[in-house]
């Protein structure tokens, strides 16, 4: 999930405070399709990703128009977008807690002596696959080159003939698509509700700080670490501690890396 956040930050110097809300939106869309049409979660992933494409275009259009300093204005703008999304989701799904409770996912997978929840395995495999594909795309394709060049220096990229606007737009499409798919995965594991987005956003920021913007492999490692800390917190102290611990980690990470998120460029 943090991948999308950090790609947007890299390419447009925008901090997307509505990131978590987009993930939640993906979760709700996934839930609705699952409840209405009974689509299998594996099919839901690309569908939810596509469903967020219009939002991606809107985000790209809006964030291109924010005044300097980009970081601060985009923060304020997406704070507004976050409020907008939460309100709309509350209006549509009436603030209910939703879970994609596909029974096939609840079954456990027997691996030797290890019993694994199939939903979690699916989530982990999907996350790994996405990161792997993204890594390939960013390092091995022309598109990846364009995106990386744009995030390092948009003016220079434009000078050498890279379609900066196109790179930006496709990054937004991809990033928000990732959010949508993440939302579906999230909804198979946790209940989604309209206010859940803020915590997810904070987590995405923490991850981006830890991993440095755009470093795919470190995002993976940081994600694992964060997941473990979260799990330990919940089992050790109880679920109520999750939010304050995430907030505390954000504070600590901000203070430790006060040079700014955008300092480390993509690759």
């Amino acid at each position: 999930m943090a991948l999308g956040f950090s790609m947007i930050l890299g390419v447009s110097r925008s901090l997307n405070l509505a990131h978590g809300d987009l993930v939640v939106l993906g979760g709700y869309v996934g839930y609705s399709l699952w409840a209405a049409a009974g689509l299998s979660p594996v099919l839901l992933l690309p569908v939810a990703a596509l469903a967020l494409a219009p939002a991606a275009l809107v985000w790209d259009w809006l964030l291109k128009r924010t005044p300097e300093p980009k970081e601060l204005s985009s923060l304020v703008l997406t704070f507004g977008l976050s409020l907008l999304l939460q309100t709309v989701m509350r209006a549509i799904w009436r603030g209910e807690y939703r879970l994609i409770a596909e029974s096939s996912l609840g079954a456990s997978l027997q691996l030797g002596t290890l019993a694994l929840n199939r939903g979690r395995v699916l989530a982990a495999v999907a996350a790994l696959a996405v990161v792997g594909l993204l890594w390939l795309a960013l390092t091995r394709t022309r598109w990846g080159q364009a995106v990386r060049a744009t995030s390092i220096d948009p003016q220079a990229a434009a000078l050498v003939g890279i379609n900066v606007d196109g790179a930006r737009r496709s990054t937004f499409l991809l990033a928000l698509g990732l959010s949508g798919a993440t939302g579906v995965l999230f909804a198979t594991l946790h209940y989604v509700h309209p206010a859940a987005g803020v915590e997810l956003t904070l987590m995405a920021i923490v991850l981006s700080i830890w991993a440095g913007v755009g470093h795919l492999r470190s995002v993976l490692a940081a994600g694992l670490l964060l997941g473990m800390i979260e799990a330990l917190t919940v089992t050790g102290w109880g679920p109520g501690w999750r939010e304050p611990v995430v907030a505390l980690m954000l504070l600590g990470s901000l203070l430790a890396r006060s040079g700014g998120l955008a300092r480390g460029h993509a690759h």
Binding site: E71, L72, L75, E199, P244, L248, L250, S258
Partner: peptide, 21 residues
């Protein structure tokens, strides 16, 4: 240690922290 957008994020984290506590 924090300025601008990062100070803003810091204040957000503080508010979330207090609410959680």
């Amino acid at each position: 240690r924090l300025r601008g957008a990062y100070l803003a994020l810091g204040t957000l984290a503080c508010a979330e922290l207090l609410r959680g506590l």
